[in-house]
């Protein structure tokens, strides 16, 4: 089991009004699952992503990630969990502009306290997985959108996280590049990673083998879909 959330609620105070972004949501995601979380805006999708990504703690309920109860942790403990167990891929890439590709990918290992020699090996391995070996010394501004997202994926992979959490990973890319990126996720899933996509695009969600739809802070549907095996081969070809 990769993660389990039990009766998780998240309430925000907006002025005098209370906003119930999540209401008693319970989900279990197993290892090596490929899950898409969908929903219209205001459905609680972003809040879900923040809670699953340990960027935010739930108001009530429990969250176990890779065997640890993270729902009551403080800021620094959450930072460590994010560092060790979660790989983020964002819609806007969120790379550090002044740092090289290599350093961007290496950064989680730096904060994780990995020794420099081992760090270089792991970083090179992750860059290899997204086929950017010849761009290592480039700055993000010298790369195309697709390449930037591949750097972000390499950064997410670099410390072998329990889950890879992708928030609209193709949202800023054209459809062809988007498919390329999705092909990388498919490959990662095949290689045994647990992937959670947060998206509102049906095309993207179809890559997943399970689609969870949210509406008004609750789970509207939770369906296991058959992912066409052939698709993966098509894109690579």
């Amino acid at each position: 089991m990769a993660l389990r959330i039990t009766d998780v609620s998240k309430t925000y105070q907006m002025g005098v009004e209370e906003v119930h972004a999540l209401q008693e949501v319970s989900i279990t995601i197993e290892d090596n699952e490929y899950v898409a979380i969908m929903g219209p805006s205001g459905s609680g999708k972003s809040t879900m992503m923040n809670v699953l990504g340990c960027l935010d703690t739930p108001t009530s309920g429990e969250y176990h990630l890779a065997g640890e109860d993270v729902s009551k942790m403080n800021d620094d403990q959450l930072a460590e969990i994010r560092n060790q167990k979660i790989g983020f891929v964002f819609q806007t890439f969120n790379l550090i502009p002044r740092a090289s590709v290599f350093h961007n990918v290496e950064l989680p290992l730096v904060y994780g306290g990995v020794a420099p020699a081992q760090r270089a090996d792991m970083t090179n391995a992750a860059i290899g997985k997204v086929a950017l070996e010849d761009r290592k010394t480039h700055k993000p501004s010298e790369l195309s959108g697709g390449q930037r997202q591949r750097v972000a994926i390499a950064r997410a992979l670099v410390n072998n996280p329990a889950i890879i959490l992708a928030d609209e990973p193709t949202g800023n890319l054209d459809s062809v590049t988007g498919e390329e990126i999705m092909a990388i996720f498919d490959g990662l899933h095949k290689a045994g990673n647990t992937i959670i996509l947060v998206t509102h695009e049906k095309d993207v969600a179809e890559h997943a083998s399970r689609i969870i739809r949210l509406k008004d802070g609750r789970v509207e549907s939770d369906l296991v879909t058959q992912r066409p095996e052939s698709r993966f081969g098509e894109v690579l070809a």
Binding site: D75, N83, Q84, N94, I96, Y111
Partner: peptide, 16 residues
Amino acid sequence: TREIGIRKAIGAKRRA
């Protein structure tokens, strides 16, 4: 600010 956000998201602690 945004860079700080990125660093925190990938595991930088407050001390860092």
